[in-house]
């Protein structure tokens, strides 16, 4: 694969799957600086993984794998040393993008509560919860994690209960 092809794929993935990557990052790290660091790591790993991508796996499955593996290996303390030369990332500072649980649309509030609940789960369950919410099939989730579909089902039942428990008392009887 040429450097040009690698760059083209990377740019396309950024355009099409940025939301997916950000969801993983937000689900795995809480503080904005940690999210920023983890996001950089995910992008770096994704870039390095492109030459091995042969199109046998679905793009989303591939990106999930890389993102989750990076998130699992990522350790907050170690990453604080990272230096950045230029800013490539601009977070939208508008009130809509800065949830404060005041004046939030009901759906946004649900999403924020979901993120908070997901971060309370064990690390492996975080990955399953995120994929499940994104609507991946059991087969796809099993492929990303390397476990059987049956086991995915068992774990998802448990995760749903845990999430429901954590979201109890939310507005509109979440």
């Amino acid at each position: 694969m040429t450097a040009q092809e690698q760059e083209t794929i990377f740019r396309r993935w950024l355009e099409e799957h940025l939301g997916l990557m950000l969801k993983v990052v937000r689900g795995c790290a809480t503080a904005p600086q940690d999210q920023d660091d983890l996001f950089q790591d995910v992008l770096l790993q994704l870039w390095s993984s492109i030459p091995a991508f042969r199109g046998e796996a679905k793009e989303t499955t591939w990106i999930y794998r890389v993102a989750f593996n990076t998130a699992l290996a990522w350790r907050r303390v170690e990453r604080r040393r990272r230096e950045r030369h230029e800013t490539f990332l601009k977070l939208d500072a508008s009130p809509r993008a800065q949830p404060s649980h005041v004046d939030l649309l009901p759906e946004q509030e649900i999403v924020e509560r979901l993120y908070a609940a997901i971060r309370q789960l064990p690390k492996v369950d975080v990955s399953l919860a995120l994929m499940h919410l994104d609507g991946l099939s059991y087969q796809e989730m099993a492929e990303v994690l390397g476990i059987s579909e049956n086991y995915v089902g068992v774990k998802l039942n448990r995760i749903r209960k845990q999430l429901a428990e954590q979201l109890k008392g939310a507005p509109d009887e979440l």
């Binding site: 990377f10 939301g19 950000l22 030369h85 990332l89 939208d92």
Partner: peptide, 16 residues
């Protein structure tokens, strides 16, 4: 999720 973020792809590639 992607709407909250603007990425400068050129700088990003350089950084990566």
């Amino acid at each position: 999720a992607g709407a909250q973020v603007t990425i400068n792809a050129d700088i990003l590639l350089k950084e990566v």
